[in-house]
């Protein structure tokens, strides 16, 4: 019985871990922290695997990941590399895509709550209802937070890049 459970979870893990690690990276902007957030989320999913099952595991995983990220922000565990000024030259080496890194840096300038909404809605490509379920709030809150988050994102975006 336990072996079947572990095999199911291993399949689930293999299919999703990289995606959720990238989502976590979009939230926090740090690969080490993203790895930690993803790992912690999958551990919590495993602990409740018999209850969440595969049908609801994705929704539960999104909820756990988002709340774990917001908890780290509330506890002051912000280990992300905060960027006060968006760099003129995107980080990531000569093979990095400049526009993507500029956008990523701008996203990190958005407040965590609004950033979480933006990531769920546009990076994870969730509907308003799914994002509301993941955050444990109303759809109206998701909509308003989305609008504010986009405004904050645009404000954080470099003028020169914005007009390009």
């Amino acid at each position: 019985m336990l072996r079947v459970r572990d095999e199911e979870f291993a399949e689930f893990f293999s299919a999703r871990f990289d995606t959720y690690r990238r989502i976590a990276h979009a939230l926090c902007g740090n690969w080490s922290l993203a790895e930690e957030l993803a790992q912690e989320s999958f551990v919590k999913v495993y602990a409740r695997w018999s209850k969440v099952r595969t049908e609801t595991a994705d929704a539960y995983l999104r909820t756990v990941l988002t709340r774990t990220f917001l908890d780290t922000k509330r506890r002051g565990r912000a280990r992300e590399h905060s960027v006060a000024e968006v760099p003129d030259t995107p980080v990531g080496g000569e093979h990095a895509v400049p526009e993507r890194e500029v956008l990523r840096a701008a996203l990190l300038g958005v407040p965590p709550g609004q950033r979480a909404v933006l990531v769920l809605r546009f990076v994870a490509d969730l509907s308003v209802e799914e994002a509301a379920a993941a955050l444990g709030c109303s759809t109206g809150t998701v909509k308003s937070q989305t609008a504010r988050g986009l405004a904050a994102l645009r404000a954080a975006y470099p003028e020169s890049t914005r007009s390009a």
């Binding site: 995606t19 990238r22 989502i23 990276h25 979009a26 526009e99 993507r100 500029v102 956008l103 990523r104 701008a106 996203l107 933006l118 990531v119 809605r121 546009f122 990076v123 490509d125 986009l150 994102l153 645009r154 975006y157 890049t161 914005r162 390009a164």
Partner: peptide
Amino acid sequence: MPVDEHALRELLD
């Protein structure tokens, strides 16, 4: 790249 919410999807790549 414009500041488009849909551009955020590229962050997964």
